[in-house]
């Protein structure tokens, strides 16, 4: 059993096809389970009442938004270092999902912020750096869209992802210091009250659901990319003829 065996697009195409149902069903079941815990089992918070339940979507989305960016940077670095085509395809397949989760995290954050803080938007360090993360995703996707040549696009996008990955921690800390300098700590996100075990459980289940969803969607997307790029090969022609 050699892992490099699956680095070839043709073998990975079939492996991905076998894996997708597992992850898709896993994502569905975990989502239902997580939402059940979130809506029916978790008690009402005595300070935040029912509105806190949005964290079961918000926190997993925020985690995934940052994690997917790192995974993209990882695949981009692997692709640049070892010249593996599949790595670039994975990076491209992940980007839209990452941008989607960033948007969801910002949007649900606004819905949570209105009843809790009385404001849709606060220039808090986390909110601001999440917004800048969304800008980075948009920039990378726009760069890919603008470059017609596949090889150039792959490499250019990966370089941009990498320089963004170096910059993300700097942006986070700069925004954090900027924020503490400009306004007093009117809202403290870091001193969250210790969470009931059942709430944490629901959040973790939802986080796994987000993982499974991301993997399933990225695999579906990477299969499309593989077929598009390998359409001149015999095996891809055979598959395309079947459909």
């Amino acid at each position: 059993m050699n892992l490099y065996h699956f680095a070839s697009p043709s073998t990975f195409y079939h492996l991905a096809g076998k894996l997708i149902p597992w992850f898709a069903w896993g994502a569905g079941i975990l989502t239902l389970w997580g939402l059940y815990i979130g809506f029916f089992q978790a008690p009402t918070d005595f300070q935040q009442s029912e509105a806190y339940r949005i964290i079961f979507i918000h926190v997993p989305a925020a985690w995934m938004s940052m994690f997917i960016y790192l995974v993209m940077a990882f695949w981009g670095a692997i692709g640049l270092a070892f010249n593996t085509r599949l790595s670039f395809m994975m990076a491209r397949a992940l980007a839209p999902t990452g941008a989607m989760f960033t948007f969801v995290a910002l949007w649900t954050g606004a819905w949570w912020g209105k009843p809790m803080w009385g404001a849709w938007w606060v220039w808090d360090a986390r909110l601001t750096s999440e917004l800048i993360l969304l800008f980075l995703y948009v920039g990378i996707i726009a760069l890919w869209a603008a470059i017609d040549d596949i090889k150039r696009g792959d490499r250019a996008g990966s370089l941009l992802t990498l320089i963004g990955a170096i910059n993300v921690p700097i942006i986070y800390f700069s925004v954090k210091w900027w924020n503490t300098l400009h306004q007093g700590a009117s809202v403290s996100l870091t001193k969250a009250p210790s969470m009931a075990a059942i709430m944490l459980q629901g959040m973790l289940v939802m986080a796994f659901a987000a993982w499974f969803y991301t993997i399933a969607v990225a695999l579906v997307r990477v299969r499309r990319i593989i077929l598009e790029r390998e359409r001149h090969t015999d095996w891809a022609k055979a598959i395309l003829a079947e459909d």
Binding site: I132, F135, A142, A146, L159, N167, I171
Partner: peptide
């Protein structure tokens, strides 16, 4: 360097680089 020779390169350059200027 990344946007060299692309259509709409100027606007794209702004989109790519402005977030990196934040610090």
């Amino acid at each position: 360097a990344l946007t060299l020779g692309l259509r709409g390169g100027g606007v794209l350059l702004t989109l790519l680089i402005l977030p990196l200027y934040v610090p």
